[in-house]
Amino acid sequence: MDRTEVHDKLRTFVLNDMIRMPDYDLKDDEPLITGGLVDSFSLALFGVFVEETFNIYIPDPDLTVENLDTLNQMIDRVLQDMA
C-alpha cells in the first residue's frame, strides 16, 4: 500500500468519523487536536480503525497529541508501522 492510498483512506476516515464533516477542507498538516477539530479521546477511534484497515497496532501510550495531531503525522505513523 503506497502513501497515496493510505492518505486517501485516512482522510476519508478523519472527515467522516472523527470530525464528522465530509465536506470540510482539511489540510494535510492542519492540527486536528490542538486546533480543536477533534478531542484527544477520538484517538481511540483512530487506533481501532488502523487495526482493522491496515492490520497494525498502535499502543495506547502512543496515541498522543504529539504523535498524531495532523493527517500527515497519522500517515507517517501508519507507513512506519507497516514497513
Binding site: D17, S40, F41, L43, A44, L45, G47, V48, F49, E51, E52, D60, P61, L63
Partner: peptide, 20 residues
C-alpha cells in the same frame, strides 16, 4: 488514566461496535 484505563476500555468497546 487515559492510556491505561480510558483507551483500553474504549478500544475494546469500539472493536465490538465501531459506532461512536
Amino acid at each position: 488514566l487515559r492510556d491505561y484505563v480510558f483507551y483500553p476500555t474504549s478500544r475494546a468497546l469500539l472493536r465490538r461496535n465501531p459506532r461512536r
